[in-house]
Write a protein that binds this DNA or RNA. Structure first.
Length: 224
DNA sequence: GCGACAG
DNA sequence: ATCTTGTCGC
């Protein structure tokens, strides 16, 4: 479990420096064992943003049934800055992960993986810190360009930044806005797309994300 | 200088 | 992210 350790109580400027020092550690090819349990990770806010609530939902990769979950709250101490999302949300996510009783084999995060200006979006950063394979599943684009995506479910178009392919714009359901899938850590793009589709049933978002989102933004009673 | 800008 | 009801369409 090759973790990485660095401070979280930093300034936006220092955060950028940390990203530059970690980008080279991201592994863009498959390096994962059997994927039996997949986890959805998401964050919500309470008290007008003063409290960050992170949630993790572990699902059986085959049945997509919830097998474990955890929630954690902590005061918000980093602002929302495009490109620095991980510094705002990861601290609370680490608390939630520590509360799990069942370890997941793969992480699906809300937000980008390497489809990021410095190739270290929240999914990549989290995967690196916890030492687990991860995938970035964003609902909207942070950077990169792409052509139109065929309407059929499963169709996708590469997301590019110059000559580099930084992700895939994937249609998880016909007729709705596509998802931005990118390598997080220890997984190749093809496998990432495959895993996202495998976790998606009849909705636009994969079940992992739907579970994590309802746990992170649902009634305050959830998990309290 | 003028946009763009994950959650 | 969050504030918020109804409504158009398959």
């Amino acid at each position: 479990m090759s973790n990485v350790d660095h401070p979280w109580n930093v300034t936006p400027r220092q955060a950028v420096e940390i990203q530059q020092s970690l980008r080279g550690l991201i592994e863009r090819e498959d390096r994962l064992g059997p994927v039996r349990r997949i986890a959805g990770v998401d964050v919500g806010f309470e008290d007008e943003g003063r409290t960050t609530r992170a949630a993790v939902a572990v699902l059986d990769a085959r049945s997509l049934e919830l097998v474990d979950c955890a929630i954690a709250r902590r005061p918000t101490r980093f602002p929302y800055v495009p490109g620095l999302l991980s510094f705002r949300e990861i601290p609370a996510i680490l608390d939630a992960l520590a509360r799990l009783r069942t370890a997941p084999d793969l992480l699906l995060c809300d937000g980008q993986g390497i489809a990021h200006p410095r190739r270290l979006g929240i999914a990549s950063h989290l995967g690196l810190v916890v030492g687990l394979p991860s995938i970035g599943v964003g609902k909207t684009r942070l950077c990169g360009t792409h052509g139109r995506v065929p309407e059929r479910k499963g169709a996708w178009t590469p997301l590019r930044d110059g000559e580099e392919i930084i992700g895939a714009v994937l249609r998880t359901r016909a007729g709705v806005k596509p998802l931005y899938v990118s390598i997080g850590h220890r997984i190749g793009l093809d496998t990432a797309i495959e895993q996202v589709l495998r976790a998606t049933t009849r909705y636009r978002l994969p079940e992992t994300t739907r579970w994590a989102h309802r746990l992170a933004s649902g009634p305050a009673a959830a998990g309290a």
